[in-house]
């Protein structure tokens, strides 16, 4: 009985240790671990057919699979790239959509700048324009990074690609965040009443901030996944 428990534990122990070292999308981690368990089960069966005992077969299967630290590192690099890809897809899609929705809402609910009693000064329009551009550039950079990531997938080290992807995502979100903070501060300085002029636009702004914070958390986790790779 005691020996049986020990036999079962060889693969289970390996799986537990491997799983504890992985960080990334839950679905991706689950799929990698499912494949690993299947592979170890297949290898164990193959060794049983060659006449080994269950314990010997499991030990051989685990040994052939590779040292858990080395395998976890390789898995983690892939998980980090997958997480980075997901974050960049979000950036490439969400930022332009969010910008278009916000601009459309502003035109619909507030109207063009010239309809205000006083036209904003040039410095304000400059910041507004820079903010618009930042969002577009961040989205474009994310898109280019996604295309390059696919083209370079086999040419460059996965760990390097994971770190690059995470850095690009973090810088892109940081730039968008900075642009939004700048426009709010500029609006508050120019005419604070415009910040709360329209309830729907205030709600739209809140949604925008929730999305930016969400993207920021994704980018931060992306970096965390990429940097735990040895």
């Amino acid at each position: 009985m005691g020996a049986d428990v020990m036999d079962v534990d060889v693969v289970d122990r390996y799986m537990t240790e491997l799983g504890s070292r992985l960080q990334g999308s839950k679905k991706q981690v689950r799929e990698l671990l499912t494949e690993t368990r299947d592979s170890l089960a297949d290898a164990t069966e193959a060794h049983l057919d060659r006449g080994l005992t269950e314990r010997e077969a499991q030990e051989r299967a685990v040994e052939e699979f590779g040292p858990v630290r080395e395998i976890a590192n390789e898995y983690q690099a892939e998980l980090a790239v997958a997480y980075g890809t997901r974050t960049l897809v979000w950036l490439a899609i969400v930022l332009p959509l969010m910008h278009m929705a916000w601009e459309y809402g502003r035109m619909l609910l507030i109207g063009p700048w010239r309809d205000f009693g006083t036209m904003p000064p040039d410095w304000y329009l400059f910041i507004a324009k820079a903010n618009d551009l930042t969002s577009g550039i961040a989205s474009g950079v994310a898109l280019v990074a996604l295309v390059l990531g696919r083209v370079l997938a086999r040419k460059y080290d996965t760990k390097l690609l994971a770190r690059l992807g995470a850095t690009i995502a973090l810088v892109a979100v940081g730039a968008v965040l900075l642009g939004n903070v700048a426009i709010i501060l500029a609006t508050a300085h120019f005419d604070a009443s415009r910040l709360v002029q329209s309830l729907p636009m205030s709600i739209a702004s809140l949604v925008t901030w929730i999305v930016i914070v969400r993207l920021g958390l994704l980018a931060r986790r992306c970096l965390s996944c990429a940097t735990i790779v040895a």
């Binding site: 290898a43 699979f65 696919r150 086999r154």
Partner: peptide
């Protein structure tokens, strides 16, 4: 080769569209 290295390599090939 450690058989465990095959799975990340397959993911890499999938990422490359191969």
């Amino acid at each position: 080769l450690p058989t465990g290295t095959v799975y990340p390599a397959l993911r890499r090939l999938e990422r490359a569209g191969h």
